[in-house]
Design a protein around this nucleic acid. Structure first.
Length: 167
DNA sequence: CCCTGATTCGC
DNA sequence: GCGAATCAGG
C-alpha cells in the first residue's frame, strides 16, 4: 500500500476527526497503526485535540455490591443498614453461588423481623429461597459482625475466594 | 493485558 | 519516505 493523495487526505481527515491510529489503519485498510502514526509524524500532524477514547470514556461496568449487607438495605429499618467497614479490599466479594458455603456451623439464623441493630447482619443462603436468613449472632465489635463474618469481611478478596473455594 | 501516541532506526 | 519494533503512559 502506498500513500496516494487520496489516502493521505483521508488520513488527515480521520486524524483531525480524532480517530485513533489503529482505527484509521482499519479504515484505510492494508496498513498498520504504526504506519499511520509514522505518516502522521512525517506530515507534521502529531499533537491534536482530545482523542475519541479520551473524550468519550468507556462505559463502566456495573459493580457488584461492595458489601453483602448492602444488597438488603431497607429504608427505615435500621437493623438492616449495612455495617460500616474501613475501605479495604472488599471488592467483588461473595458471589451468590458461593454465599451459602460461607455459613458457619455456629450461626444463629434469624429472619428480617428478628434482626437487631447489635446483631451480625451477614446474609445466609440463597436470597431467593425459603431458607434465606441472616446471621443473628451477637456482634463482637462496631463492625456489627460476629467474629466469623467479620473475619471474612476483612479478608482480602483474593484470600476470601481461595478460602470459599476450598470450603 | 488491553489500549494509546511517540520515537527510533534499518530498509 | 516507510513502517516494524519498541517505549512510555493510561
Amino acid at each position: 500500500m502506498n500513500w496516494t493523495d487520496e489516502r493521505v487526505e483521508l488520513l488527515k481527515k480521520l486524524w483531525a476527526a480524532g480517530l485513533s491510529a489503529s482505527q484509521i489503519a482499519g479504515e484505510l485498510g492494508g496498513i498498520t497503526r504504526n504506519a499511520v502514526i509514522g505518516k502522521v509524524h512525517r506530515l507534521g500532524l502529531s499533537g491534536r485535540a482530545k482523542t475519541v477514547s479520551s473524550a468519550a470514556p468507556r462505559p463502566r461496568k456495573p459493580r457488584a455490591p461492595s458489601h453483602p449487607a448492602s444488597m438488603f438495605r431497607v429504608q427505615g429499618n435500621t437493623a438492616l443498614q449495612p455495617s460500616r467497614l474501613p475501605d479495604l479490599d472488599i471488592e467483588p466479594f461473595i458471589q451468590p453461588e458461593v454465599r451459602p458455603m460461607l455459613e458457619p456451623v455456629s450461626c444463629e439464623r434469624v429472619t428480617i423481623m428478628d434482626l437487631r441493630e447489635a446483631m451480625c447482619r451477614w446474609p445466609l443462603g440463597d436470597p431467593g429461597s425459603e431458607e434465606f436468613r441472616f446471621c443473628g449472632s451477637r456482634s463482637n465489635s462496631a463492625s456489627s459482625y460476629c467474629g466469623y463474618h467479620a473475619q471474612l469481611a476483612y479478608q482480602p478478596a483474593s484470600d476470601r475466594r481461595r478460602r470459599t473455594a476450598a470450603a
